[in-house]
Amino acid sequence: MSTDSGRVWGGMTPTEREQRRREQFLAAGLEVFGERGWAASTVLDVCREARLSQRYFYEQFASREALFLAVVDRAAEQIEAVVRAAAVAPGRSPQERAAGVLTALAEHFTADPRTVRVTLVESLATPQFRARRARLVEAFGALAARLMVGLSADPSTVDRRSLELSALVISGGIAEALIASATGRAPASAAELVGHLTALYTAAAAMAAR
């Protein structure tokens, strides 16, 4: 028994049990929102999926909206981890690094289309959700800009404004391609998309050269 955590039950402290329940709700939220969509989902649906009571839900989240945003934030954290791991892979040229990051992202989204639906489709449902979605797309744009700088023949001569504009436009296209792929309308294979995007990033870097 821990004096600061309360009674240990089932080998877990109250804090550990609370964290486990939160993880259960996050997983259930991804499943419910990703499969049914925001409008067709209820707190009761999430609780049934998590196999936990509504009492435990409201101990963790103030509302269904709060859970949705937490699910989006968790997805963003996972995407960031995927990018970080791919970006630091050793022994790669700038082109290989860009392709590696894009491939890792494509594999991540392909492995779980629910993430695409929640972060890019259902996140259009309310103004608050759209603001969070906009930040996520901006993060994609910032990543694209960093990759483009690495693809430039001379990064010191890059026009950053031009680069950021290209990154924003291309990131919007990436979002649409991901949505199409998640809904069974993939415009091309993942390998084709990665190759095309790498070429676009390289061209944008050349166009931004001063």
Rank of each mutant, 00 (worst) to 15 (best):
A153T: 12
A106I: 03
E77Y: 05
F61Y: 15
M207G: 08
P155E: 00
A76S: 14
V82K: 04
A70V: 01
A85D: 14
A209Y: 07
T103P: 02
I170Q: 13
V137R: 05
V71H: 04
R132W: 05
R7E: 14
G173D: 04
L163D: 03
L143I: 06
E192L: 11
T157C: 13
A203R: 14
Q54H: 10
G10Q: 09
A199F: 08
A175I: 00
A134P: 02
A28W: 08
R21Q: 14
Q60Y: 12
R20H: 09
A125G: 10
W9D: 15
S5D: 12
A125R: 11
R51C: 08
S123D: 07
T103L: 07
E35I: 08
F57T: 01
A76E: 14
S189E: 04
V8C: 08
A191H: 10
R64Y: 12
D4P: 05
A75I: 15
E23C: 04
R84C: 04
A87H: 11
D73Q: 11
D73P: 07
W9C: 09
P187E: 04
V121G: 01
D159F: 01
L52V: 02
R48L: 14
T126E: 10
E23M: 07
W38A: 09
D154W: 03
A206H: 15
L200G: 06
F109K: 00
V101C: 04
V116G: 06
T119R: 15
V82T: 09
W38Y: 15
G195V: 05
S152R: 00
E65D: 15
G184C: 00
A131I: 10
L120D: 12
F33A: 01
D112R: 01
S2C: 10
Q24H: 13
L178T: 01
G34F: 00
R51A: 15
A62W: 11
V32L: 03
A50H: 05
A86C: 00
A98W: 02
S189I: 02
Q54D: 09
R48S: 13
A70P: 00
R135I: 06
G10S: 08
A188F: 08
R210V: 12
L165N: 12
R161E: 14
A182R: 03
F109C: 00
E192H: 11
A86H: 00
V137A: 07
H108F: 15
E31C: 09
Q19R: 12
R130T: 09
L178G: 01
Y56Q: 11
